[in-house]
Each structure stands twice: as C-alpha cells, then as structure tokens.
Amino acid sequence: MITGAAGGIGTLVRPRLRKQGRTLRLLDITRPAPPEASEDVEIVEGSVTDADTMALACEDVDAILHLAGHSRENSWAETLSVNIDGTRTVLEAARKSEVPRVLLASSNHAAGFRPVSETATLAADSAPRPDTYYGVSKAAVEALGSLYHSRFGMDVICLRIGSCFEEVHDERGLGLWLSPDDAARLFEACLSCRSPGYRVIWGVSANTRRPVPLDEAEALGYRPQDDAEVFASQVTPGTDHDLLGGPFTTAPLGAPN
C-alpha cells in the first residue's frame, strides 16, 4: 500500500513500482488517477488520520510505503494532526493487521540544523536537528517507527529524503536531489532486503555534490544511477548555506514555504 499516493512522490513512483504479480493499493484523500490497463491497483479514498479507514486499508497488505502528510511547513495543529498523529494511526493499523514492513518518508529537514561541514560522514540515525515544524514531525515519525519496531518487531525503515522531483530547481537541489527513478530503486531495495529491523537512511541520488552518505542505503541494496549535475547549467547560483536545511533554517515557523 502507498499512502499519499496522489501526492508528488506517490504520483512519480507509482508507474515505477509496477511489477508483475504486485498489487498496489493506493490511498489518499484525493482520488488517485484511474488505473491504466496494465496496472493492478486498488484505490482507497480516505485519510491516514482516520483509524477505521486505515484498519480496512491495511487488510491483507504485505508492506506499506507511507508518503502521506503535509510535505511543506504548515501550522503546528495541522502538522501534529496529519504528520505525527496520522503516522501513529498508520503504524497502529499496520500492527493490528500484522503488516510486517513499513517504509516511512522522513526528510532531510529532520536534520536541517546540522552543519554541512559535518554531514558528509553523518550517520542518518544520528540525533535529529530539525529546522521547522515539518522537520520536527519527521523526527517524530522516526521515533514512532523505532517504537513500533522495538515493541512489536515490525521492520521499519525511515528514509530521510532530499528533494524528489523530475528536475532540479535550485542549487541546494544539486546535492539533495532524489530522482524519481532512484526513488523507486530505493523503495525496491527497502522492500526486498531481508530482515532490516529498524533503520534510518539518507535518500538521495548519486549526486556529485551530495552532502550526505549513502552507506546505510547501499547496505540495503540501493544502487543509485542518477546525478543532479546534469541540471547544473540550468540552475541559477544561490546563496551558500552552512546548514543542511539551507533557507528553511530561517523561514517563519508555521508558514507555508
């Protein structure tokens, strides 16, 4: 099952996760695009904040890719309700339905106040340094994943994703870009690796300017093939930032960015 299947990353990876013998259950509050003839999909309209919806959606599921949530800075109330409480609702439904593996979309913003000078060798599971309410929610998502692994034995992998778009739009993205193709490769590696337990990994492509290590993701079988450097000539040089979160470390809290 993919939560947030009609969102940005969900839409990008949906066709890339098609596989013979695999059924994709697509959940979102916005109805995802209708299935194509070659797709084996089931569509569920509903919110990750609704326990009854999630209980039904988790029936007979082998793994969950949890992408749902506010993907930008929002009010504290919305961030708490959707990103944090919503994730707990997903994990609780998964536990009750005995779903063995959950992939949780975290973010580089969970560590946005880390100096770039120290991130090249920084383990993804190092202590969070969030840069926004959004970053706080992703740190909480990782903590919830740890709890549900430790308490209930669920395999949980938290992916600190950089920025996943078709193209790179700014200089910061030249380091943190996760191409849609590499996103699918990363998700497939996390779905197929044997008994990962609880992991936190960085999720970016093989970028020349990559500010974070990929050792932990590669240990799970991830083999990125794309490099954001192909967009370098199209990107206008920006202000140098000493912190991983860049301009997000000074943006207003609770205001959409």
Rank of each mutant, 00 (worst) to 15 (best):
R151S: 11
R22C: 03
S192A: 09
A206R: 13
G46V: 08
I84E: 14
S81K: 15
P213H: 05
I161P: 11
H241S: 05
C164A: 13
S137G: 05
N74I: 06
W202Y: 15
A139R: 06
R114G: 02
H169Y: 07
A93Q: 11
V48Q: 14
Q225G: 14
A33T: 15
A37Q: 12
I2T: 14
A251E: 04
S137D: 03
E229R: 12
I43D: 10
R16K: 11
S163E: 07
L220C: 12
R22L: 00
V212Y: 07
T236F: 04
A5K: 08
W177C: 03
A68G: 04
F187N: 11
T119N: 02
A143W: 10
R88D: 08
I43K: 12
R129G: 00
A124F: 05
R72A: 04
D181G: 13
V141W: 07
V116Q: 05
S205G: 13
T30N: 15
E45A: 02
A33V: 14
R22P: 08
V13Q: 12
G145R: 07
D52G: 02
A217H: 13
L56R: 15
E45H: 10
R223Q: 06
E167T: 13
A63N: 13
C193K: 15
Y222N: 06
N108V: 12
S146P: 11
V235K: 05
R151I: 07
L220M: 12
T3M: 04
A251P: 06
L80D: 12
A183Y: 05
D226L: 01
R22N: 06
I157K: 13
L178E: 14
I157R: 11
P35L: 01
P247E: 02
A189Y: 07
D226C: 00
S75C: 07
L214D: 09
R114D: 11
H70Q: 10
R95W: 01
I43V: 15
A140D: 07
N207Y: 02
H149A: 00
G112Y: 04
F187D: 07
R72K: 10
Y133I: 00
A93V: 04
A184S: 10
A143C: 11
I29W: 09
D181E: 14
S47Q: 04
G46Q: 10
P252G: 00
